[in-house]
C-alpha cells in the first residue's frame, strides 16, 4: 500500500486554487439538465447540478488535480462523504461567475474495519458582481487500503 505521510496530507490544508471566471454556456446547461432527466428550466436558469463541476473548473482546478493533491492511489480509491451546496442566488446561463476555492481541511481517519483513509474537504465560493451566489463543500475519502 502506498500510504502518504500524514504530515503531507495535513500540509495541503489552506491550499488555494488559482481562481478564475466561469460562465455556464447554454449548450452545457442543456446537456447537464438532460442528464438529470429533467426538462430545461425556464428563464435561463441553470440546473443546480452545475454546482459540482462549475466551482471546480472555474477555480482553475480539476477532478484529476484534486485526486492528485490528496495523493489518491487510483480513481477507484476515492469515496464521496458529502456534497453541501448553499445557494444564495439561482444560477443562470451565460453569466460570468468569479470563483475561488481551497482545501478546507484534511485529516487521517480510520474505518470501523481498520482501513485508513484521508478525509479531505474542499470549499468553493461563487460570486457575481461582488455578491455571493453559492458556496459548495466537497468531502472525499482517499482510501488507503488495509492497515
Amino acid at each position: 500500500m502506498n500510504l502518504p505521510e500524514e504530515s503531507a496530507i495535513k500540509a495541503i490544508v489552506g491550499h488555494q486554487f488559482p481562481g478564475g471566471d466561469y460562465a455556464i454556456a447554454h449548450w452545457e446547461n442543456f446537456l447537464l439538465t438532460e442528464c438529470t432527466g429533467a426538462e430545461a428550466l425556464p428563464d435561463g436558469l441553470a440546473h443546480p447540478v452545475a454546482l459540482f463541476h462549475v466551482p471546480i473548473l472555474g477555480a482553475g482546478t480539476s477532478i484529476a488535480e484534486m485526486f492528485e493533491l490528496g495523493q489518491a492511489t487510483s480513481e477507484f480509491s476515492i469515496g464521496i462523504e458529502s456534497y453541501d451546496w448553499e445557494i444564495y442566488q439561482p444560477l443562470k446561463e451565460e453569466l460570468t461567475y468569479q470563483i475561488s476555492g481551497k482545501v478546507l481541511d484534511a485529516e487521517r481517519c480510520q474505518h470501523e474495519d481498520g482501513r485508513l483513509y484521508d478525509r479531505i474537504s474542499f470549499q468553493f465560493d461563487l460570486a457575481h458582481g461582488g455578491e455571493a451566489v453559492a458556496r459548495t463543500t466537497i468531502i472525499w475519502h482517499y482510501n488507503r487500503g488495509a492497515r
Binding site: 432527466g37 443546480p48 469515496g79 462523504e81 458529502s82 456534497y83 448553499e86 445557494i87 444564495y88
Partner: peptide, 20 residues
C-alpha cells in the same frame, strides 16, 4: 433537485446536503 423543483419551483432550493 428535480423532485424539489417540481414541488416548490426552480428557484426554491436554498441548501442541499447529500451523503452517499
Amino acid at each position: 433537485v428535480n423532485m424539489l423543483h417540481e414541488w416548490a419551483g426552480p428557484e426554491s432550493i436554498r441548501r442541499i446536503y447529500m451523503t452517499f
